[in-house]
Design a protein around this nucleic acid. Structure first.
Lengths: 186, 186
DNA sequence: TTTATTTTACCGAACGTTCGGTAATTTTTA
DNA sequence: TAAAAATTACCGAACGTTCGGTAAAATAAA
């Protein structure tokens, strides 16, 4: 019997969170069902191509988040570049919950089906770098240096998330966010 | 029928490689058996406590590698500190195969049984940091700064491995290794 | 011949997936 | 506008496969 109507936005969020936390192979259908509040068969109604489609959908959520909180914000000329950057960093802090959350781009990069997600993951990292590059140029860096340091920020954030996630020491993540402005300012 | 005697050292290596590449949940018993050349039941003969014991054994291999190539080398007073550091960096480069290999410490940090490995993983990261801290002090850094930058090196290497692994661009890893000496020298 | 190691064969449980069917909703028709 | 029809959303039950794991037989080593 049909018991209740489920909020679709919440399903998206829970899929994203579950894949982020457990990785592709670790996120079993049972875990995904429990997290979303939908039965397994209902998940297959929404994602006819199964688990892989669910993970790709989670990646689309990330891409959408990046376009909204990083790319769009980096181009928001209504506020000074330094304030924009501050806002972008705060968004990153919120996304990863101060380092307590794993990054989906990373967790989907290993496992039995990692190849299936590689293109989307690379694209997301490029979008992030593009956003940071744009503000860095406005903050006085030469384009080449801006791009180089934007890539470095991706790397720094990921590294800090690995160390914070593995050890529980949130200072890795916290410090890496604090170091971003000086990396992007002339 | 029993066909051939398997080299135990190679089994260790293959376990390490398989867990590194696929993560804990992705490394199925079938994958581990295929990689080592042993049947599943033979793996259970060597590791009576099953898959978790195999992963812990792989972690012990990493710890042993760190003690040998980082901690011991950092204390090898026969050569100048700068040469020691060079050797340590070359070892890291070899371990990760120029960025083509994943890091076991990272891949075992996510998944359904991540908690079971957290302590060992943290210990390994601390050992790495200790080794780099020691040479940094010899190279003129104050102890606090040496420790801080050694932690930063762990983070930098992990971040570069994430980006290189996810995108295929090995320059992340290569550049991060090149930047190590200036981080540890006064 | 005794002991250690690997193998075959197998197990229950969990895996991702599919199916038949029902309640709720939306769309069409009268 | 109200009834009929079509569509959507969901679920219980089961599918075949693969999971991690085990017992007993076979082989190799001592």
């Amino acid at each position: 019997m049909r018991t209740q109507k489920v909020n679709p936005e919440n399903v998206d969020l829970k899929l994203f969170e579950t894949f982020s936390e457990l990785g592709y192979d670790g996120a079993s259908m049972e875990a995904l069902a429990k997290a979303t509040g939908l039965k397994k068969a209902s998940l297959y109604h929404r994602f006819p191509n199964g688990k892989k489609e669910m993970a790709k959908h989670a990646l689309e959520i990330v891409e959408h988040w990046i376009l909204q909180h990083i790319v769009a914000e980096s181009a928001n000329k209504n506020v000074p570049a330094s304030a924009r950057l501050k806002k972008m960093i705060a968004s990153v802090d919120e996304l990863y919950n101060g380092g307590a959350n794993n990054c989906l781009l990373r967790t989907l990069s290993i496992g039995t089906d990692a190849n299936a997600f590689k293109e989307s993951v690379t694209n997301c990292f490029n979008l992030l770098a593009d956003g940071f590059t744009d503000v860095a140029i406005e903050l006085g860096l030469l384009p080449d240096k801006a791009k180089q340091n934007a890539r470095l920020i991706n790397q720094t954030i990921q590294g800090s998330l690995v160390l914070t996630g593995a050890t529980g020491d949130k200072s890795y993540f916290k410090n890496s966010l604090e170091r971003i402005p000086e990396l992007l300012t002339a």
